[in-house]
């Protein structure tokens, strides 16, 4: 029933699909090359369950439910199972499950309007960028110095990339270069086409979930 904002741009790439968390997910793309994910892979993760909330009571609401709340804005914390909670502003949060799942569905069911806590609908286009040429792609598309960011500091950056408002964070992924990226779903196809175009020039391209995250345990 759910569909990724990239459904129609992925379709011509002949994806091998599997439904995960209620959305068809491209596990592999017919024409992707084995090395692309290591050089520069662009992978659709829009299927991951996520929720947003904001308001002066949002931090306390999460804490009451044992969700680790980043102490300051523009930081994120990992969740068991590979998910994360990102503090996008003083009183706005994004919570996303990992591949096997997480707390999002349960939290969303509990989230009612007010007082001081308001749901933020999240129908994002969510991407993962992987590979050794990641830095070159980032400097061609965004004016933030991600190289200077310490991945261990778990920084969340809200910025503009090729004219699209994005939320970006670097994952400390055991020596691999992985960046997570979220944008409004309506900008997703444009962002995807632009990033995969540049990735192609840099020796990479669009990849399926199995290539980008071969060790995932869904």
């Amino acid at each position: 029933m759910r569909a990724s904002p990239l459904r129609h741009v992925l379709a011509p790439l002949h994806p091998r699909l599997e439904v995960l968390h209620g959305m068809p997910v491209a596990l592999h793309l017919r024409d992707e090359q084995p090395g692309w994910a290591g050089v520069l892979g662009v992978c659709d993760l829009s299927f991951l369950p996520r929720m947003g909330l904001k308001g002066p009571g949002a931090a306390a609401w999460l804490a009451e439910r044992d969700i680790p709340v980043p102490a300051v804005p523009n930081r994120w914390e990992p969740l068991p199972g590979g998910g994360l909670v990102a503090r996008l502003a003083r009183s706005e949060f994004l919570v996303e499950d990992g591949f096997p799942g997480g707390p999002v569905t349960g939290l969303a069911a509990q989230l009612q309007v007010g007082p001081g806590v308001y749901p933020v609908p999240r129908q994002d286009c969510a991407l993962a960028l992987t590979g050794s040429a990641l830095t070159e792609l980032l400097v061609q598309t965004c004016n933030v110095d991600f190289v200077a960011q310490d991945a261990a500091a778990r920084v969340v950056t809200l910025t503009s990339m090729v004219g699209v408002s994005v939320t970006v964070l670097r994952l400390p992924a055991d020596g691999r270069h992985v960046v997570r990226l979220w944008c409004d779903g309506t900008m997703g196809p444009y962002l995807w086409e632009t990033l995969t175009g540049i990735a192609g020039e840099l020796g990479g391209g669009p990849v399926g979930l199995d290539s980008a995250f071969p060790d995932r345990s869904a």
């Binding site: 459904r7 309506t186 444009y190």
Partner: peptide, 17 residues
């Protein structure tokens, strides 16, 4: 440069096409 031209599509874009 590359000439970025951001474009928005509704989720129904492919249906329209």
């Amino acid at each position: 440069g590359r000439g970025f031209s951001p474009r928005r599509e509704t989720p129904l874009h492919s249906r329209h096409a």
